[in-house]
Amino acid sequence: MKDGAGSPVGAVLVVGGGISGVQASLDLASSGFKVYLVEKAPMIGGKMAQLDKTFPTLDCSL
């Protein structure tokens, strides 16, 4: 970011695609940034995808 280091890059790397990584990615992508969402598993979703219904609303988790 300092002068001379070149101008910053308008892209963000998100490490981990659970609900938090997905939320950060969506917010950043919707406000003008390119996002790389890196997930080590074959699918995103993390633990939340495994939950049945979630507190306190008891609606389905996805």
């Binding site: 970011m1 300092k2 280091a5 070149g6 101008s7 910053p8 890059v9 790397l13 490490v15 695609g17 609900i19 997905v22 990615s25 969506l26 992508a29 919707s30 940034f33 390119k34 996002v35 790389y36 969402l37 890196v38 997930e39 080590k40 598993a41 074959p42 699918m43 995103i44 979703g45 995808a49 996805l62």
Partner: peptide, 30 residues
């Protein structure tokens, strides 16, 4: 969740590991 898969500005890289991170705030090479 499905929205992330469809968003034109999100590239989902599944089955992927981070190896190295270099650079500084504003300019990282990963």
């Amino acid at each position: 969740m499905a929205e992330a898969g469809r968003h034109p500005n999100i590239r989902v890289l599944a089955n992927t590991d981070i190896e190295t991170v270099e650079g500084e705030a504003g300019n990282f090479t990963v």
